[in-house]
Every structure is written in structure tokens, then in C-alpha cells.
Design a protein around this nucleic acid. Structure first.
Lengths: 150, 150
DNA sequence: CTTCATGCAAACTGTTTGCAGAGAC
DNA sequence: GTCTCTGCAAACAGTTTGCATGAAG
């Protein structure tokens, strides 16, 4: 279950013994169309725009599967829901700036080199000091956007 | 509603027109005793050890209030629950290392100077570029601890 | 004695599970 | 044909809300 760009998602399914079904295709298309960081209900909404009726249960199960296969990334921005983003080579590393009121999410990748250097250093230290295998990190800034400050 | 060390929490209540009640006292004591990053149910448990019976509803409302008054910090470590930690002068700034399996949370404060410098820089850039008022940030590493890797 | 706090029951939200029927291979 | 996938209904967990009672000031 290695990570791979979502262009190969069909192979990724087959290689791992999963079936290529209509709901799965449709959900992936919806994710590509919509972009951003939708939650399950927002994906349902995007589907219904194209008159695709897929049960919420299937959506949850498909999202889980896609995360497991490395097709999607799962985020939790502190509003008690899972949000999803297609994984691709070129969005591998960005961080987030989130408005606590409207949950607008801005991705930024400035200072990435400096960040990466420091984070690698911290990761190494933490791994040794606490005997952890580190998997991922998240650097997130929270605040209020222009609109929500009024 | 300024932040203040939790030693002044009684004043903080009074100044803001809230009553000094037994449940509030008891919950604060439980938080001091327990330490760590308990969720609501774990606080209930800590209370029951000392035979304090307080309704979950009251616990939630008290925690909300304490967060609002700056007595507590609220965290979300991605397990879909709120967790709380007493705020005090000397734990103002640490980051977290979390085991995704057992949700053990390690606080670390190594590299803090370097981190702070970089984070201030990023914060400034984000504030200007996106017109955000930034409130807080979180740098969190996720992985698996020694025990959970077996 | 007024106002705010408490606690119960019920509601709510996002998510998960059991199970029978449908679809992929 | 077999085995996985789907979708409905029901369960679930954490949290919130309405409302009558109780305690603080």
C-alpha cells in the first residue's frame, strides 16, 4: 500500500484486490472536480450536483479505502469532522492556515525549505529521545480571516 | 477575559460575573490532580475517585467556561474529542508528539527558540499575505510509540 | 429573592456496523 | 458463481440543549 499519485488509482485498487465500481469512480471524479478540503457531506453535495446518488455509508467507506491506498489525505481541522484532499506528487507538503469561524482553509508553502530543515531536525530528536516512529506532522495556524473579523 | 495563571481562577470567575460553585472547585481540583490531557470522561473518572458525583453536562459547561476564561487550553488530537490542560505561565509553549494508536501525548519543548523564530516569521508572512489575525498555532508530530509498534 | 448553575432526559452530529440484496470479475 | 460492494436502518460516541430544580450572592 504505497503512496501513489491519484492518476494511478485504478491500478492501486486492482493491485490490492479491490473492485473498480461505479460509486468509487464517481466519488473520485467528484473529489477532482470539487478540490479543497471537503468533508463527507460536502462530497455528497458535490455528487448530487451531477445527479449521482450514493449513500453516505458508501462515501465513508470509500474515503477510508482511498486514504488507506494513499489516494487521499485525511485532515482534522478541529471542527470534529474528517476532511479529505486528493494526494498528488506536487501537493505533498504544505501547511494550513485556518479561520476558526468559517473553517476556510488556506494552504501555503512559503518558507517550506526552512520549515523542512527544522522539522527534520526535531523529528530526529523526538524519534531518538522518545522511541517513536514518526509518520507525519502538522503545522497549522488558527485565526480569523478578514470577513469573519467584522 | 485575559489569560491568567490558574492560581487566580477564583478571581477570574468573579470578575466576569460567574459564581464560585462546588462543582467548579471540584473540577479544577480534579484537573490539578490528574494532569495530562484528559477528555471529559476522564475528568468524570478522576472525580469519581474522590467520590465526587458531577453530571457530564456540568463538566462540559465548566470546561467551556474555563477555556473562555483562559484557565484551560483545549486540544484536539485527531481522535474526535476535546482534551484539556490547565494553562499556566510555564507551560505556555510546548508542542506535541502523539501516538496514533494509544493516543499517548508527549509534550516537548526542545528547539523551542528555533521554532519560535521560524514560526513568528511564518506568522508575519501569513498575516500580511492573507489578511488573517492569527491566534494560535499547533505543531504536532504523529507516529507510533514503542509499545504500540509491537 | 434574584440570578445563575446544575442535572436529567432528549436531541444532535459525524461516523460506524449488521445485514440482505446487487454488482464486479 | 463467488466474493466484494452497496445502501438502508440502527447503533454509537461525544457533545449540546431545554427545562425544572437548587444553590450562590
Amino acid at each position: 500500500m504505497r503512496r501513489r499519485g491519484f492518476r494511478n488509482w485504478e491500478n492501486s485498487l486492482k493491485e490490492n484486490g479491490y473492485k473498480l465500481t461505479n460509486p468509487r469512480k464517481t466519488i473520485l471524479e467528484a473529489l477532482e472536480r470539487r478540490g479543497g478540503h471537503p468533508n463527507a457531506r460536502e462530497i455528497l453535495l458535490e455528487l448530487s450536483r451531477k445527479n449521482s446518488e450514493i449513500g453516505l455509508t458508501t462515501i465513508y467507506r470509500t474515503l477510508d479505502l482511498f486514504v488507506k491506498l494513499g489516494i487521499l489525505k485525511r485532515y482534522d481541522f478541529g471542527d470534529r469532522q474528517n476532511r479529505y484532499e486528493l494526494f498528488s506528487e506536487d501537493n505533498e507538503h504544505h501547511h494550513h492556515l485556518i479561520c476558526k469561524k468559517c473553517i476556510k482553509v488556506i494552504e501555503y508553502d512559503d518558507f517550506l525549505d526552512e520549515e523542512t530543515t527544522l522539522i527534520k531536525k526535531i523529528e530526529k530528536m523526538l524519534t531518538e529521545k522518545y522511541d517513536f516512529v514518526i509518520d507525519k506532522h502538522e503545522l497549522t495556524f488558527y485565526g480569523y480571516c478578514k470577513n469573519c473579523r467584522k
